[in-house]
């Protein structure tokens, strides 16, 4: 059953990556990367149970922290740059 969840989460990560590459705006990419990070946390937790090593949860927790901080940091960086650099007009 953990294998099912692992496969599903990997598929979602692939979808998030496709969205991150397609864009079209910068914010789509940030959102996709945030979703990718959320799924990374889920993946590490599920794989920990799959391999019978729940210590993986510590790493999952660190990933959850890093994911949140990185999104906020990227946004702080782009919020103060000129608008025509951040929104790519199609």
């Amino acid at each position: 059953m953990f294998l099912t969840a692992t496969a599903a989460i990997l598929v979602v990560m692939l979808m998030a990556l496709i969205r991150a590459f397609l864009g079209p705006t910068l914010y789509d990419r940030i959102l996709a990367v945030n979703m990718f990070g959320t799924n990374t946390v889920l993946l590490i937790a599920v794989v920990g149970f799959l391999m019978g090593r729940p210590e993986f949860l510590d790493i999952a927790m660190v990933y959850a922290l890093v994911n949140f901080i990185s999104v906020i940091a990227i946004l702080r960086y782009f919020e103060y740059s000129p608008p025509d650099e951040t929104v790519e007009h199609k």
């Binding site: 059953m1 099912t4 496969a7 599903a8 979602v12 692939l14 705006t25 914010y27 789509d28 979703m35």
Partner: peptide
């Protein structure tokens, strides 16, 4: 719960690709 959660996660991924704007 795990299968339902996996399905909901895939649904979110599909929405990420299908929905029209940010």
């Amino acid at each position: 719960l795990l299968v339902a959660g996996s399905f909901i996660c895939v649904t979110g991924g599909v929405g990420m690709l299908r929905f029209p704007d940010f």
